[in-house]
Simulated assay, not measured.
Amino acid sequence: MDKRADLGRFLRRRRETAPPLVTTGSRRRTPGLRREEVAELASISTVYYERLEQGRGSLPSAPVLGGLAQALRLDDDARDHLYRLAGHAPPVRPGNGEDVDPALDYVMGAVAGTTPASITDGLGDVLKQNRLNRELLGDVSGLPGWEANLTWRWFTSPAWRDLMEPRDQHEASGLAYAADLRAGLARREPDARAAALLADLLAASEEFVEAWDRHVVSALHCAAKVIDHPEVGRIDLECSVITSPTSPQRLLLLKPTPGTPSAARIGRLAAPYNQCVVTPLADS
């Protein structure tokens, strides 16, 4: 696929369908924007912009793409597509901080009585857990430093990962965490927090260094979990990851493995939370 040609076609089509500039007394014979108008709004030369539409020359830099996205009034999805056509990672969308994605939060609440779940940001920081998740994995969200970060906990807390998985899965899971972090960093614009997490992991864990040096890049996929709970016994879980379409956040669901008594055992843990008091209607 010729990225330059695809980029040119995309720019031309979006320019032709962009809202036209309105000036007093002007009459537009054609819809959209003129090339020189896009160039002026994006703070680049008209000649350079024409070359981009023609699929010629070098691919634009990230700052130029930002100017083009503003000039053409692209929404987030179209802007991200523009960056990818030019070979750049799209800028991180708003919502990568402490504000929990409302759609993911709704789903987590909907399954709270049956499924342990948590929401993480693009770096793997746990932003929120439901009661069952805290019951099985401990209260992680809101801890200071990197203690709320799943990748950090995996590589620096052997007791915590022993709680979740058999040791014969640890190498594969460690590689998956490192690969997900590499993918997450590739999607972000450089920032101090991401750089600090990587530097601290490289300094703290030789195991992480080995996994990082393998240069595997992949979105997070969770291995099956086996948790021996002191009250209800062994719980076998399958992990599913749901990504948000509007933010870098993800919902991690731990579903009881079919064919095992895990669902009933989770039900016993959830019983105190699921009980509700029904108030009879007053006689009319």
Rank of each mutant, 00 (worst) to 15 (best):
T120D: 00
L181S: 08
D283A: 15
L143F: 04
Q275F: 11
V100G: 05
E37L: 05
A62P: 08
A211W: 05
S218Y: 06
L127R: 13
T151I: 15
E135H: 06
L197N: 03
L220V: 06
G97M: 02
S284L: 14
A18G: 06
P116L: 07
R15P: 04
T246D: 15
L251V: 06
L150D: 01
H215A: 12
G138Q: 11
D105R: 14
T151H: 01
V47E: 10
A178W: 03
P261M: 05
L11W: 02
E165I: 15
T257Y: 02
P272T: 07
Q54G: 06
G145D: 10
G267D: 00
L7I: 04
H81T: 09
L185P: 09
D75Y: 11
Q249A: 06
D101C: 11
R9G: 13
T46E: 03
A203G: 14
L269Y: 05
A103H: 11
T246N: 13
G66P: 03
D125K: 04
P158Y: 07
R182D: 09
H229F: 03
G142Y: 05
L136Q: 08
W152G: 08
G122W: 02
K3Q: 13
G174L: 04
I266R: 04
A159Y: 00
G67L: 05
D6P: 01
A86K: 05
Q70E: 13
A62I: 12
Y106K: 10
A71S: 10
R28M: 03
S141F: 01
